[in-house]
Nucleic acid binder design. Structure first.
Lengths: 141, 141
DNA sequence: TACCAACCTACCAAGTTGGTCTGAAGAACG
DNA sequence: CGTTCTTCAGACCAACTTGGTAGGTTGGTA
């Protein structure tokens, strides 16, 4: 299951996209609109900022804003940063060392293709796609 | 991430398939071959048995065996039973009540198609497919 | 300099994961 | 009948993750 880390992060970025006007948007407003505790939101933002998805400004008139246009964010990028990683098994994580049994593993090809499949799916959807509802997310299987 | 519940369950069923001979196979043997503690294996089996994937017999000469041929098991079925459910978000679980915001939810269609995608993927792979290595799990995206 | 908002750190309750341990009960076999 | 082998049921446990809350500090603007 996708945790609140991923789901809330998506909602925060959607909110920033919907209310973007060039200046910084305080999280107090996002928290109120999205009905998420401000304190919890603050814990979700550092990875998004470190990943370069958002820009921040301290102090009065400060807040956060998107660094790009909504169609320049893929959902994969957002979820990966928010959740840490989305690999289905340990041995497919980016930072994983090669598993000793990988050559004989009967399930690894299945996990590997699964990972590619979901990566492809979420990489083809952008933040802008989510903003315009009524869009069908086509896929062929 | 797929937990050990799902991954070990798969390995147990693969083992039962590889060593099937019509009679019951004691889990002691499976535990030794798969290098998984017998006690932990015993905790994974009830859902698989309740789901009708395996049959058991008490006592001497007893153990577990598959109830069908390996090509009659889909990976989706196995993982669903072992993991409980694989829905990416709460509102897509079988037992979930309709979410109040579902009509306006900007992300629900994305989750819904994601769920269908992975369900389709794992439903097209059978236990028999895993047994014959070198098989490519084709997908189109 | 006052104010505001990001930012950092610590803390906490509840649930999940990945086990272990003890024992009961059913079935076969000598 | 009793032993042996196996499933099966249940309690227990440590470590980790999730989903928060609380308090205070820093940095920037007006």
């Amino acid at each position: 299951m996708i945790s609140t880390k991923g789901r809330y992060s998506l909602r925060i970025l959607i909110d920033l996209a919907q209310h973007r006007n060039g200046s910084y948007i305080p999280m107090k407003d996002v928290a109120r609109r999205q009905n998420i505790s401000l304190k919890y939101i603050e814990r979700l933002l550092p990875p998004l900022k470190d990943g370069g998805l958002i820009d921040s400004l301290h102090g009065k008139g400060g807040g956060y804003k998107l660094t790009r246009e909504p169609d320049q964010y893929t959902i994969w990028e957002i979820l990966s940063l928010a959740e840490g990683n989305l690999a289905p098994v340990e041995c497919l994580r980016e930072d994983a060392e090669q598993c000793a049994r990988s050559a004989q593993c009967l399930t690894l090809p299945m996990w590997d293709n699964y990972y590619k499949l979901i990566k492809g799916y979420f990489s083809d959807i952008t933040l802008a796609d989510l903003l315009k509802r009524d869009v069908e997310y086509d896929y062929i299987i």
